[in-house]
């Protein structure tokens, strides 16, 4: 049995009936109405509880939770810069390790969490993240993927999907919007051969929380990639954040899986996938796409999903 499998073998899991009441992230934050990113973060924090140190990258989740003199954090939290949260958490973790060993503190069970947006994770901070994963610090990294730089006004990132119109990949006469395919961040994390990688969605809170909890039980680095709907940037209804997140899973756009000790495990098989057009229809960032474009994207999504099923050893 691998390190991760061993650590989680007795894990029981949450359910809607026994939700922890704790809210390490408090009300009064300034996220937009219906923000799916803060919802995902809230669910993650409920799973982690309060014996945690949180390191934040610059981005929406930093701005909306910490305008001085108010903090939405009930747990210790630090923000330093945009691209370095993986390095900051490395330092925090190393400090705890050294101070525990030297008898300066007696806090061996603290969990260390770093989070950043997709821009912070897949673009500017990928070096620091790679370094921290490779060095094997005992921490959880959460990428809150809302598929653009939202904090600075909806600019494209390498995690923006093909065809999405953003303020730096605008659709126009000579442009279909984003002209590159979404970077596969979880696969990059997997390539570091860390014990645990998983994708999760706030539309499936129990699954999300279970994955966060498992990540905290597993020694060494864990990388979690959260689908994080942004009604402001995607131009969909604020009430539809959870619906669009669910549809992303049901249309195979954002499959849910774990990679435990390098083994891919599908979290839920999409039996009757919805067409991607349905998913696109909810969001005005895709509304310029033609039927041919959508067909082309559908084929790519189908192929990627088939590839994933293969990795998971699941029959198509």
């Amino acid at each position: 049995m691998g390190i991760a499998a061993e650590a989680i073998k007795d894990f029981k899991g949450f359910n809607l009936k026994n939700m922890p009441e704790v809210e390490p992230l408090s009300s009064g934050h300034r996220a937009c109405q219906g923000c799916g990113e803060i919802l995902a973060l809230r669910q993650a924090m409920k799973a982690l509880g309060t014996n945690v140190v949180v390191c934040s990258a610059t981005g929406c989740m930093e701005i909306v939770t910490s305008p001085f003199p108010q903090t939405a954090w009930n747990v210790p939290w630090i923000h330093v810069a945009f691209e370095n949260t993986s390095a900051v958490v490395s330092g925090v973790e190393a400090a705890y390790k050294a101070m525990n060993r030297k008898g300066k503190i007696n806090q061996p069970d603290v969990t260390f969490l770093a989070y950043g947006g997709d821009g912070s994770t897949a673009d500017i901070g990928i070096q620091a993240l790679s370094g921290a994963l490779e060095r094997g610090h005992n921490f959880i990294y959460i990428c809150l993927d809302n598929e653009a730089y939202m904090n600075t006004g909806i600019q494209r990132s390498s995690s923006t999907p093909w065809g999405a119109s953003t303020t730096t990949s605008p659709a126009g006469k000579y442009s279909k919007g984003q002209s590159t395919w979404k970077k596969n961040m979880p696969a990059i994390a997997v390539a570091h051969e860390i014990p645990y990688v998983a994708t999760a969605s706030p539309a499936y809170p129990v699954d999300l929380m279970n994955k966060v909890k498992k990540a905290s039980m597993i020694p060494g680095p864990a990388y979690l990639h959260f689908y994080s709907p942004c009604p402001t940037g995607w131009r969909c209804g604020g009430d539809e954040s959870v619906a669009v997140a669910r549809l992303a899973v049901q249309s195979k756009v954002f499959p849910l899986y774990e990679v435990i000790d390098g083994q891919y495990v599908l979290s839920r098989k999409v039996a009757k996938p919805k067409p991607i057009s349905e998913y696109f229809k909810m969001q005005r960032r895709f509304r310029h796409l033609t039927e041919t474009d959508v067909q082309m994207i559908q084929e790519r999504i189908d192929a990627e999903y088939a590839e994933l099923l293969k990795k998971c050893g699941v029959e198509a």
Partner: peptide, 24 residues
């Protein structure tokens, strides 16, 4: 809206979760 002398070390916030005062 406070004097610089009243700031906590490094401009930190020492009242956890005080965003709860904000009436969103």
């Amino acid at each position: 809206i406070m004097s610089w002398k009243e700031l906590e070390l490094g401009n930190s916030i020492t009242r956890p979760g005080n965003a709860g005062e904000l009436k969103t």
